[in-house]
Amino acid sequence: MNSVQLLRGPLRPVLMGLLMTVACVTSVRAEQGVALTPLDQVPEGVEVRGKQVAAYTWDDRQGKNLLVLAEQVGERDDDGTQSAFVYAAQYVLSGERPKRVWMLYDDVQHCEFDAGLRFDRAATRVTDLLGDGNTQATVGYSRACTSDVSPNEFKLIMHVGKSEKYRLRGLDRVGASWWDEDAGALRGMPLPTDCSVAAQQALVSQYKEQGTELPLPGCYGDEKDFAKAPDSYLAFMRQQWFALMQQQDADWSQSQAQPQAASEDDDTAP
């Protein structure tokens, strides 16, 4: 079973309105980020671990850059366990061979339940937040080893050059709400709009959930990585986190409501 405990109880229906739509990164406007060009095949000399799920190029002061994303879920071993991983890397495409700037690798090893790591493609952004021609590459992904449907660990990571990395880590909105047949509505802890400890505790108190661990579904744990970062980095990452969680919340809520609506249509059919 997942280490994240599902919240149950007499909670208000989850609001589905006022949700921000997150655009696909392949159509980023200039004011939203650096324009990206998708690639089906990466150049020779670029390492791809696992199955390639996306690749993009863009230009900045370094020259032409490449970002590649890949993921892999393995078959079950003889002992019944399962492993999975995600891989991302940025390259500068100059000289005789591509030069790797940074690499990201995360995995789940020997999971006794269902292992899963998956990029959220809407999280992939390249920005020039300081306006100096040096870009920041941001990716996000979920990580799980679970036997049920409940929120997964979620990481949003910004890379700046070779050595700078800034992270927000918490829980996504998968499984955060469910259909209550008696009430005829979705129930669950609503999506937080402030991930400070005080705000999360206030939300728990409002909904009278006892013993709920933080972070709540849809929130990150802390902002410690940004203590010495430019203010624009944290502002962007906060905005990006909440936009992603809003979209996840909308998608999950719709997936829970649609089966119920279909069932009602079947019941009223002649």
Rank of each mutant, 00 (worst) to 15 (best):
F226C: 12
A84T: 00
R121F: 13
Y87M: 13
L104V: 06
P230N: 07
M1N: 11
D132Q: 00
G211L: 07
V48W: 01
E47L: 03
R125W: 03
F154M: 14
F85H: 12
L67N: 04
L19T: 05
T81M: 05
E31V: 07
Q247G: 12
A199M: 11
S147G: 14
V92K: 06
E153H: 09
W241T: 07
F226Y: 13
T37Q: 15
G211Y: 03
E223P: 02
S253E: 04
Q201A: 06
E112L: 04
K228T: 01
K64I: 04
R173M: 11
K162M: 00
E96N: 13
Y220P: 05
A30N: 00
G80S: 04
Y220M: 13
L36F: 01
L191P: 04
R121A: 12
A269Y: 11
V48F: 03
G9T: 00
F236W: 14
Q206R: 14
D78E: 15
H159C: 05
Q90N: 15
D114S: 14
A202D: 15
D128G: 11
A123W: 05
R125I: 04
L171M: 15
S232D: 07
S205T: 09
K51P: 01
A198V: 14
N2G: 11
T26M: 13
L168H: 04
A261V: 02
W178F: 07
A235M: 00
L39A: 08
G211C: 10
G95Q: 01
K224G: 01
C145P: 09
V197G: 09
T135S: 07
G140P: 00
L156Y: 07
E71Y: 03
E31M: 14
A235H: 04
F85G: 03
K228S: 13
V68G: 02
S27I: 03
R29N: 11
D79V: 09
Y233L: 11
S177N: 15
R100N: 00
G95S: 00
T135V: 08
Y105R: 14
G74E: 11
Q254T: 03
K155G: 08
N2Y: 04
L216S: 03
L191A: 07
G95E: 01
A235E: 02
T37N: 11
R97L: 01
Y87L: 09
G116H: 04
G17H: 02
Q72R: 12
G170Y: 08
L244K: 10
T127R: 14
T124Y: 06
D267W: 13
E75W: 02
A227R: 06
T268R: 15
R238G: 12
D180C: 04
Q247W: 08
L186A: 02
G74V: 02
Y105I: 15
Q52K: 12
V68W: 05
T26K: 00
R97V: 13
A54R: 10
K99V: 04
D249N: 14
H159E: 08
V139W: 01
A23I: 02
L18E: 09
G184Q: 06
E209W: 11
Y220G: 09
N2D: 15
